[in-house]
Design a protein around this nucleic acid. Structure first.
Lengths: 229, 229
DNA sequence: CAGCACTGTAAAAAAACTGTCACAATAATG
DNA sequence: CATTATTGTGACAGTTTTTTTACAGTGCTG
């Protein structure tokens, strides 16, 4: 059974983005726009994990969190908090809230899915994938290692996240803008052409030994990871 | 058969943390949020060891302890008490309670698992691992000795616990925060950068003879212990 | 109480990584 | 084949992150 994730977020654009991306990640996703709605939905069907915005209309995120922790049947549902930078971070860090993890906006999809995987792994080991293989490429998110044909490959943080994203959606073409959103974060501003440079760096690292380039350039569209399978 | 540990703890965050870590340690783990629930669960299946919070709602830890000691079938189940600093420590120290050991919060995971191993060793010798080998590194938790390629290596207490933790999860990357939680203790407040210094000290001690550094730095993520396997 | 071993912090030094740009190379188009 | 649009690349300056070093404080031991 695929994990069921409830996203509680009032800002519409972000909610849609999360819905879209988590669904693509293979989760069943449901949205709630405020705390009240969230609680109703949770009563209807118990999620496997909740992504919860800190600031919410009607019933605040922290209040939702407390209420869930107070009830036996929801006590063990993992919660990941979404907070803006500097927003009472210390308090969350201390986990007084009872949240299992938190993530500071702006965040990249890669980062969020990594957290979700980590939390789900605690609850339902075996559900969350730690390692992905595509052709001769292997990426291990726990040990942070990338291998090609068994050879270890060193990547910088950005190249690692970039490859991670590609590996999760093999064959699919992404525009520079999509990659920026997914890998850099939804409201980070960097030049679109920067993606080219990082793709270049990723290629260089990947193809030190081989001459077959797993990354395909799609002119006037973007890039994709190809693997003959 | 892997040992079955019952954790009785009302504070949710700590309970989750314990559950997660002990499970990873290879134990079968069950949680109870108060004394009543604990007693019910114990009736259902007799644990090999109980980790019991001193302060509990409904039936207090000490009461649970007394009742277990009063019944023949539970008399010999080892109990490790969890107490806050200064919390009637003397009385526990005297072991009037019948607990086999106690540990004062905040404690590190390393510390707790060491106690659990020690107690289990008394009951079921051979079950608890005293020694771990990874590549050319050996750590012996009973004699508190570390060797590399047979050469004895002296480590300070913190470096020892740090290496211990790494050895228990080889290859895996830990953030500074995770290491602080696991090695220093869940609510000790020290600067995250301090981890760097101790990793540095550990490296220095480990690499006196060799030039191969078993500790890998993962930029913007943390550290991992690597062993060619 | 002096000496020693160990801690945590802070600050300096080193290393790794980023984002941009300018220009080169390549592909598409008519 | 010349032109235009798009992508690749090397250099670089700036930033972030890690490593190293120094130091002051603590607690233990003889």
């Amino acid at each position: 059974m695929t994990p069921y994730v409830l996203v509680v977020e009032d800002e519409d654009a972000l909610a849609t983005l999360l819905h879209y991306n988590l669904e693509k990640e293979g989760y069943r996703v449901s949205l709630a726009a405020d705390g009240e709605e969230a609680l109703t939905q949770i009563d209807e069907q118990l999620p496997d994990l909740i992504v919860l915005d800190w600031m919410l209309p009607k019933v605040s995120g922290i209040e939702v969190c407390r209420r869930l922790r107070g009830r036996a049947e929801t006590r063990n549902v993992p919660i990941i908090m979404l907070t803006a930078r500097g927003e009472e971070t210390d308090r969350i860090r201390g986990l007084d809230t009872g949240a299992d993890d938190y993530i500071v906006k702006p965040f990249s999809m890669i980062e969020l899915t990594a957290r979700i995987r980590a939390v789900l792994r605690r609850i339902r080991p075996g559900l969350a994938e730690d390692r992905t293989r595509q052709g001769d490429l292997t990426i291990d998110r726990v040990s942070h290692r990338v291998k090609r044909e068994g050879r270890e490959i060193h990547l910088g943080p950005t190249e690692f996240r970039l490859l991670d994203y590609f590996m999760q959606h093999p064959g699919r073409v992404f525009s520079r803008e999509q990659l920026l959103d997914a890998v850099w974060g939804s409201d980070v501003y960097v030049e679109a052409r920067t993606v080219d440079v990082h793709v270049g760096r990723l290629r260089k690292a990947l193809n030190l030994d081989t001459e077959i380039d797993p990354i395909r350039t799609v002119r006037s569209a973007g890039y994709a990871l190809d693997v003959d399978s």
